[in-house]
Computed example of a mutant assay.
Amino acid sequence: MLTIYGVYRSRATRTLWLAGELGIAYKHVPVIQARRLDNPLADTAPLNTLSPTFLTINPMGTIPCIQDDGIVLYESMAINLYLARKYGGPLAPKDLSEDGAVMQWSFFAATEIETQSLKISTTFAEDLAKTAAGKAVIDVAARLLQRPLRVLEQHLASHDYLISDRFTVADINVAEVVRYAQAHTALIDTYPALKAWLERCQSRPAFKAMWDARGAEAA
């Protein structure tokens, strides 16, 4: 059986959402980020990214991580592309052309959007968005996001989804990266096609189930 390691309040959301879309059976093992613990190596510490037992599975100590039929993967984009190809049906690329497009959009999100998007998410999460320092971080991140978000906006202005006008793993991978910037509503509102696409993705039952589970998890 597929095993997914990681808590919902991490990049594991993209894999847990995909697993829900695929409707596959899996075991979920919560692994918390060590940085969230005062002493991650204490005997009483919950399973975390520095726990020796987890490091025997994933020596990088990152989440998400999966085990599937003897295969171990611990890069979230690679995990999702693998699971889509193995189990995906319409969520997977149907030919080489779509495969290239799925990889392009996924890596585009990871390299061109995620770093700045995470800065926005972290600033809001730490309740710093209204401080002078926080506003400066958000302003710089938003400026650096303008070009990649414009690229998405131009594509989505004539497409309901990223690949062949059907929902695929590419939409999950990209939507979960763009979501980090979603708290900056003025930025997202600037791109109406992008905003509408994000709403379509997040209205799906599998996303809602994942998001409810995330909300029920300890912050």
Rank of each mutant, 00 (worst) to 15 (best):
Y5Q: 05
Y8I: 11
R9P: 05
R11D: 05
A12P: 06
A12V: 10
A12K: 02
A12H: 01
A19R: 00
A19M: 06
G20C: 06
Y26D: 13
K27C: 14
K27E: 15
V29M: 04
I32L: 14
Q33E: 08
Q33N: 12
R35Y: 11
R36F: 11
D38F: 05
P40F: 10
A42Y: 06
D43R: 13
T44E: 11
T44S: 12
A45E: 00
L47M: 08
T49Y: 01
S51M: 00
S51A: 09
L55M: 09
T56N: 11
I57T: 08
G61C: 02
T62A: 07
P64A: 10
C65I: 03
D68Q: 12
G70H: 07
G70W: 05
V72N: 08
Y74S: 11
S76H: 03
S76G: 04
M77I: 13
L81V: 10
A84C: 12
R85C: 11
K86M: 08
K86W: 04
K86N: 11
Y87T: 04
G88R: 03
G88K: 04
G89R: 02
P90N: 03
L91Q: 02
A92I: 01
K94H: 15
D95V: 06
S97H: 13
S97N: 15
E98N: 00
D99H: 12
G100C: 12
A101T: 09
M103W: 12
M103K: 13
S106G: 09
A109K: 05
A109F: 05
A109R: 01
A110Q: 12
E112D: 15
E112A: 14
T115L: 14
K119W: 07
T123W: 10
E126Y: 07
D127G: 11
D127W: 07
L128S: 08
A129L: 06
A129E: 10
A129P: 03
A132Y: 06
A133C: 11
V137M: 06
V137G: 00
L145Y: 05
L149W: 00
L149I: 05
R150F: 13
V151T: 13
L152S: 02
E153H: 08
S158L: 15
Y161M: 01
L162I: 01
L162R: 02
I163M: 02
S164R: 10
D165P: 09
F167H: 03
F167C: 01
T168E: 01
T168V: 04
A170H: 04
D171F: 03
I172R: 07
N173T: 09
V178F: 00
R179C: 13
A181E: 03
T185D: 14
I188V: 10
D189V: 08
D189H: 12
D189Q: 15
T190F: 03
T190M: 10
Y191R: 03
P192E: 06
P192M: 01
A193S: 14
A193D: 13
L194V: 08
W197Q: 02
E199D: 12
R200H: 03
S203A: 11
P205R: 01
A206H: 08
F207M: 07
F207H: 02
F207W: 06
K208A: 14
K208H: 10
D212L: 15
A213G: 09
R214W: 15
G215K: 09
G215D: 15
G215Y: 13
A216F: 10
A218R: 15
A218G: 12
A219M: 14
A219E: 14
